[in-house]
Amino acid sequence: MSNTITCPNCGHTFSLSDVQKHELQHMREELQATIKLEMQKDFDERAKSYATKLKIESEDQVKKQTIELESYKKRDEEARAKEIVFLKEKQIMEMKAKDMELEKERAIIEARKTMEEDFSKQATVKLALEMEKAARENDKKFAEKEQQLEQLRRSLEDANRKATQGSMQIQGEIQEDALKAMLQAEFIFDVISDVEKGIKGADIIQEVRNEYGQSVGIIAWESKNTKAWSDSWVDKLKEDRLRVNAGVSIIASSVLPEGITQFGLYRDIWVTSYESALPLTFALRTHMIELSKTRNSLKGKDEKMEALYHYLISSEFKAKIENIVEAFTTMRDSLDQEKRAMERIWSAREKQLERVISNTSRLYGDMQGLIGAQLPKVDYLELGSGEE
C-alpha cells in the first residue's frame, strides 16, 4: 500500500505522515480555537454575570445606604423636633415655676394680711367688749364704792364722835359699824342687821341670799377689838348662833388665837383678821349657796344632810376654803399670765398656718408638674385671671 497521497485539486503528492501531522495540527488549532472561544465565551458570560451581580449588589447597597441615610435623617429630624419641644416645655415649666413661686409669695402675703386683719378685728372687738364690760363693772363698783364710802364716812363720823368718849365699848362699836358697812357695801343682796342693845346675841346677823333673793342661811358675826384673845368669845358665839339658827359663825378680831395668822377654823368657829374678812365671806357665801341647792335637792334625806354637815366642819372643807381665799387674792395675776400665754399661742399658730399653706402650695406644684392637667384644680392655689 502506498504511503503517499495526491491532492486532487493541485496534484501535489505528499506522504501520509505529513497529512496526519497537518490534520493533527489543524485539529489542534481548531480545538485550541474552539477551546479558546468557549473559554472566552464562558469568561464573558461569567464576567457579565459577575458584573450583573456586582451591579445588583451595588444597587442594593446603594438603596440600603439610601434607606439608612433617610432613616438617620428622619431620626435626626425627630430628635431635633423632640429636643425643640422639650426645650420649649422646659422653658414653659420654668416660667410656670417662677410664676408659681411668685404666686406663692403673693398668697402667703395675702394670707398673712388677711390673718392680721382678722386678728386685728377680733382684737378690736374683744378690746371693745372688754372695755365696755370693764366700764360697766367700774360704774357698778364706783357706785358701790361711793355707797360704801358714804357709809364709811358716816361710820367714821360716828366713830370719831364716839372715839372721843374713850371707852373700849365705844371703840368696839366703831369697829362693829365699820364691819357692818363693809358687808353692806359688798353684799348688796344680803340683809345685814344689828342685834338690838340689851338683847343677848351676836354683834351682826348676815342673812345670805342667792341670786333669786331666797334666803340660804345666816352668818353670825362677832367683832372684837382688843389686845388679847379670849376663848370665852368662842363659847359665847356658839350660844348666840343657836338663838338665830346661824349655820356659820365668824369672829373678826384684831388679835387671833395661837396658830392662826390670817384666818382659820378654831373650835368649830371661823376666826379672821379684818383684812381677810371680806375674802373669807366671799368663799363661805359661795359654799352656803351651793349647800342650799344641795339641801333642797336632798330634802327628807337626813343621813346625807348629816354627812354634808360633817363635811362642812371638816378639815377638808377648811382647806378648800383656804384655797378659795388664796385663789381670790391671786386671780388678777393669773388673768395677766393667761393673756400673755394666749398671745404666745396666737403667734405660734400664725407661724404654723403659714408653714401649712407654704408646704401645701409646694406639694400642689410638684403634683401638677408630674400629673399635668389631669390634676383637679384648687382655685386658691391656681393663678388668677387678673380680674375681680
Score class of each variant (00 low, 15 high):
2 S>A: 09
3 N>Q: 08
6 T>M: 13
8 P>Q: 06
13 T>K: 10
17 S>L: 13
24 L>R: 12
26 H>K: 11
34 T>P: 00
37 L>D: 15
38 E>Q: 14
39 M>Q: 15
45 E>T: 07
47 A>K: 07
51 A>C: 12
52 T>C: 04
60 D>Q: 11
62 V>C: 07
69 L>T: 12
70 E>T: 14
75 R>S: 09
80 R>C: 05
81 A>D: 12
83 E>M: 11
86 F>Y: 08
103 E>L: 09
105 E>A: 11
110 E>G: 04
115 M>Y: 15
134 A>I: 12
136 R>V: 06
137 E>I: 14
143 A>V: 05
146 E>A: 11
147 Q>E: 12
150 E>W: 04
153 R>T: 08
156 L>Q: 05
158 D>N: 10
166 G>H: 05
169 Q>G: 07
176 E>N: 03
181 A>C: 06
183 L>M: 10
198 G>K: 03
207 E>L: 06
209 R>S: 03
209 R>F: 02
214 Q>W: 03
216 V>D: 02
218 I>V: 14
225 N>W: 10
235 D>Q: 15
237 L>P: 00
241 R>M: 14
252 A>G: 06
256 L>W: 03
260 I>T: 03
263 F>L: 06
269 I>F: 02
272 T>V: 13
273 S>A: 01
284 L>Y: 00
288 M>N: 00
288 M>K: 02
293 K>L: 09
300 G>D: 02
304 K>S: 11
306 E>K: 12
308 L>G: 02
312 L>P: 00
324 I>C: 12
327 A>C: 01
334 S>N: 12
345 I>T: 08
348 A>M: 09
348 A>L: 13
359 N>W: 00
363 L>V: 10
379 D>W: 15
388 E>D: 12
